[in-house]
Amino acid sequence: MSKEQLKLRSMIVTALFAAIIGVLAQVTIPLPLVPITGQTLAIGLAATILGARYGTISVILYLIIGSAGVPVFAEFSGGISKLVGPTGGYLVGFVPTAFFIGWFMEKQGFTIKNALMANVIGMFITLSFGTAWLKIAADLSWTAAMTGGFTPFIIVGLIKAALASWIGIAVRNRLITANLLFSAKPNVNQTF
């Protein structure tokens, strides 16, 4: 397979994961301050399957599409106001979360155990960014921000981390078997 074909394939898979994040963002359970969404599951899947570089690029692409006004954020919303509003910290936090999960997996190996560790830590990265931003944007006390933006998401976050790990490793292995994803770290001759 030529270098151009590999590059095209990686761009298509990255864009596909940006779309998957947008679709899973619509799976919501409303709560008073911040809804529970499928976005964090999708972020974990993207990073677990694609690794640091392409997982992070898929998240950035998702954020660009959403901030341009396409309704891909939770509850079919979009626009730059979502990035700077009270829940914008969670969205922005997806970038370091995806990078960390992918980086950890690349360094430690793509196993379910490593994926679970990476996704749990990633969950706390997202929650930390989101809670800090929520405190500032909504002018809340730390107690109110933690109560409304952190604590209610721990149990659900652990469940999503486990699902992202198990499903992510299974899908990654199948994509590698189908030659749609490379198991080795990218080098000069490989784009993906």
Rank of each mutant, 00 (worst) to 15 (best):
S2G: 12
K3F: 06
K3N: 04
E4I: 15
K7Q: 13
S10P: 07
M11H: 11
F17L: 09
I20M: 12
I20G: 07
A25L: 04
A25F: 04
A25P: 01
T28E: 02
T28C: 05
I29T: 14
P30K: 10
P32W: 13
L33S: 13
T37Q: 11
G38K: 11
L41R: 08
I43T: 05
A47R: 10
T48F: 00
L50S: 10
G51A: 10
T56I: 10
V59H: 07
I60C: 05
L63W: 00
L63V: 03
I64P: 05
I65R: 11
A68D: 05
G69E: 11
F73C: 07
A74W: 01
G78R: 14
G79P: 08
K82E: 01
L83G: 12
L83A: 13
L83P: 11
V84F: 14
G85W: 10
Y90S: 03
F94V: 02
F94E: 01
V95E: 06
T97F: 05
I101K: 05
W103V: 04
M105H: 01
Q108N: 02
G109T: 09
G109K: 10
I112T: 10
A115G: 08
A115M: 03
A115Q: 03
M117E: 00
N119G: 02
L127K: 08
S128G: 08
F129V: 00
F129I: 03
F129E: 01
T131W: 04
A132F: 03
W133L: 03
I136E: 11
D139L: 10
W142L: 06
W142C: 04
T143S: 13
A145M: 09
M146D: 00
T147C: 03
G149D: 01
F150K: 03
T151I: 15
F153A: 06
I154A: 05
I159Q: 11
K160N: 01
A161R: 15
A161K: 15
W166M: 11
I169Y: 04
A170N: 10
A170M: 12
N173H: 11
T177W: 06
T177N: 13
F182P: 01
S183K: 05
A184T: 12
N189I: 09
F192N: 07
F192C: 08
